[in-house]
């Protein structure tokens, strides 16, 4: 039996921390923010890895592999596009 109450505490603290940190993000960067948090929540890839690699049942392997594919699309694409966007934000005039 996992310790639900300590999990709930972790959830509550992380949620409040998230609210605090996100409030400080400049509205300039709201689009990259969304793609970054999306990439971060693709951490579900670790659960997918455990399913795809555990060789339990055929169904779990298939679903796990699909989940790895879906989550890693976000991991790879999410961080890459966030960087591509952030690179564009420049304070000074760029020479053209």
């Amino acid at each position: 039996m996992p310790d639900i109450s300590s999990h709930l505490f972790v959830f509550m603290l992380a949620a409040f921390l998230g609210l605090e940190v996100i409030h400080r993000v400049s509205p300039l960067l709201h689009t990259p923010l969304m793609s970054l948090t999306n990439a971060i929540s693709a951490i579900s890839v670790i659960a997918a890895i455990q399913l795809a690699g555990a060789k339990e049942t055929t169904l779990s392997t298939i679903l796990g592999t699909c989940a790895v594919a879906a989550a890693s699309t976000n991991v790879i694409g999410g961080f890459m596009i966030t960087d591509r966007m952030l690179k564009m934000f420049k304070k000074r005039e760029a020479k053209r």
Binding site: A52, A69, S72, T73
Partner: peptide
């Protein structure tokens, strides 16, 4: 860390998943 977990006994399907993810995610991002 996830790949190190002892109950991950086979990597082939994980790699398949990653390759698909890369092929979908990277071109879209670039």
């Amino acid at each position: 860390g996830a790949l190190l977990q002892y109950h991950v006994v086979t990597y082939e399907w994980i790699i398949v998943g990653f390759v698909i993810g890369f092929l979908l995610g990277a071109p879209m991002a670039i």
